[in-house]
Amino acid sequence: MKADPAAQRRLLDLAEVDAELTRLAHRRRALPEHAELTEAEARVRAGKDAVVEAETAAGDLDRDIRRLERDVEGVRARTEKDRAVLAGSGVSARQAADLQHELETLARRQGVLEDEQLEVMEQREALGGNLDHSRRVLAEAEEHLQAVTGRRDTALADIDAAEGGRRRDRETILPELPEDLLAVYEKRREQGRAGAGLLRERRCGACRLELDRTFLGRVKAAAADDVVHCEECGAILVRTGESGL
């Protein structure tokens, strides 16, 4: 294949643009914010789980407290009723004894309930501190997640802008290249390989390998418009004044 030396040199500009696009794509995939975001999202999920667990436990204790309050009020109400009956007229000695026994039983029952109520309230107070802590941890995790997301979005926007500029550069270069030369270049790109490289100091700019002297002799003997390929990687080997041939 033959191509004007100027077109071959212009191919190097396209290769540079494509190399930059490749670097930008790698940078997009390898952004440290991706890993940070995964970790931050996990922290938020763990924080939410901790808050839900604490809220559920707090709700259970609140229900226990309300139940105990109702039980205590019931015992107090029964105590007041029995005292009123005991203080009234017409109560026999047997009835008075029974009422006194029931009042003692109610007093013991009230004491047990109040002790249980106090214990549950202390548990609830301690859990309230844990719940507040869990909510603070969650808020901090959500704030961190928001910050990481912002940094990620900013980095991606910068990459998008850079890619947009390089793609416009590419579209400017493409019409300047012969179709057959471009087809060979693009085929290699589709295979995930470098399409072209500058020959400089006996090295291929695409694979960076030093080339054999015999091969370089053949390259030197080739016509200026001959399209030659690196014997190591197969990329189009572009010769310029820097090639030292």
Rank of each mutant, 00 (worst) to 15 (best):
V219Q: 02
D49Q: 15
A107E: 11
G195I: 00
A87Q: 06
H34Y: 09
A126H: 15
R136Y: 11
V148I: 11
R45N: 13
V228D: 04
C207T: 03
R239N: 02
E80A: 10
E140A: 15
D160I: 03
E73Q: 09
A221K: 11
E176L: 15
K2V: 07
R76W: 08
G241R: 10
L209T: 14
H101M: 10
R167N: 09
D169S: 08
A196G: 02
R66N: 12
T22F: 11
T79D: 04
V112L: 13
A19K: 05
T56I: 09
A222I: 05
R83I: 07
T154L: 15
L118H: 15
R168Q: 15
N130T: 15
R27F: 05
D160S: 05
Q100N: 11
K187S: 15
R188M: 07
L31E: 03
L181C: 03
L61M: 05
L177I: 03
E55P: 03
L245F: 02
R67Q: 13
I65A: 08
Q191C: 06
L12M: 05
Q8D: 01
L182G: 00
E102Y: 05
S89R: 14
E20H: 06
A84K: 11
D180K: 06
V112S: 12
D225L: 05
R28N: 05
V137N: 07
S89H: 13
R167V: 07
A77V: 04
R28E: 12
L199Q: 00
V219T: 04
I236E: 01
R188D: 03
V52D: 14
L181E: 00
A141T: 01
T79S: 08
D169Y: 03
E179F: 02
K48C: 09
V148P: 00
S134Y: 06
K220I: 04
L31C: 06
L145C: 04
V91W: 00
A224Y: 07
A183N: 06
Q191N: 11
E33T: 12
Q8N: 03
R188I: 03
E16F: 06
I173A: 04
E20D: 11
A35D: 14
